[in-house]
């Protein structure tokens, strides 16, 4: 089983990296085409978010947070929140756009011989790339502020890998489901909102009632959000929860891709 799926993955993607790159570049270009700021937009969007959060929580709500690894200050909470929002926003955008990748492009599915397995990965990659425009300045700000570079930053790419694995699995599943169940995109809105509040993003894991904690263990996004913060701020990521998140993400990715492969033969018939 574990051997069969990578074989399938290879068959589905063999020599397709160039096409995936083109598709992602097209996706991003289409979003910012004609805009004067062009490629600067993702950066502007991310920085304005960071600015709004720090202002809002520092000067309006006077939220005080003690974040290990960060000096106590009025702006701490905003920065801490931003770090948690980065992976979540990338996840939410990937899933929302991923749902329509097959159902929204009947031309590619019915009229062209196309490696369909690439399509759900496109919004996953674009949203992730856009989130990097927030991650890099955030790391720069933290380093400038604390005059310290944590070696735990080396773990961040691993965390991102787990995030991409989990996101891709869900994206494959919703892309396939949308072809058959046209209510899927609508249902995703409230589900993503629910997920947002069920995941410790605006609150910390420590604030979660003990009774509910086991649920957070099966939610890979909880560990991913926490690990973004840990690797960027404090340098002490929780390896056990990251490990279980990796395992669950791998299962989700395999299941999502299997569902996609299983139903793809019927895509052209349904659309």
């Amino acid at each position: 089983m574990t051997l069969a799926i990578p074989g399938g993955v290879r068959a589905a993607f063999g020599g397709r990296w160039y096409l995936l790159r083109l598709l992602v570049a097209r996706d991003l270009a289409a979003k910012y085409k004609g805009a004067i700021l062009g490629r600067a937009w993702p950066l502007v969007i991310q920085l304005s978010q960071l600015l709004v959060f720090t202002y809002l929580f520092a000067y309006i709500f006077h939220a005080r947070a003690t974040v290990p690894g960060l000096p106590a200050s009025a702006t701490t909470f905003g920065i801490w929140l931003f770090a948690g929002l980065l992976p979540w926003n990338a996840f939410a955008a990937s899933i929302t756009q991923g749902a329509m990748t097959i159902a929204g492009q009947p031309n590619l599915i019915k009229k062209v011989v196309f490696p369909l397995a690439l399509l759900p990965l496109v919004p996953v990659c674009s949203a992730f790339l856009e989130s990097l425009f927030g991650v890099v300045p955030l790391i720069a700000i933290v380093i400038a502020w604390t005059h310290a570079v944590h070696s735990s930053l080396m773990l961040l790419p691993v965390v991102m890998g787990i995030q991409l694995l989990f996101t891709s699995g869900i994206a494959y599943a919703v892309a396939a489901l949308t072809v058959f169940l046209r209510d899927t995109p609508q249902a995703l809105g409230p589900l993503i909102l629910l997920g947002f509040y069920a995941t410790p993003i605006v609150y910390s894991f420590a604030m979660v009632p003990t009774a509910i904690r086991p649920f957070e263990v099966v939610n890979p996004m909880a560990a991913i959000v926490a690990s973004y913060r840990d690797t960027i701020f404090s340098g002490t990521p929780h390896l056990a929860s990251l490990g279980s998140a990796a395992a669950i993400s791998a299962i989700v990715a395999l299941a999502g891709f299997a569902l996609f492969r299983r139903t793809r033969g019927a895509f052209a018939d349904v659309l």
Binding site: F180, T263, V270
Partner: peptide, 10 residues
């Protein structure tokens, strides 16, 4: 209905 369609595909 659409559930039958999904069921058939799966």
């Amino acid at each position: 209905n659409q559930w039958h369609r999904l069921n058939a595909a799966l």
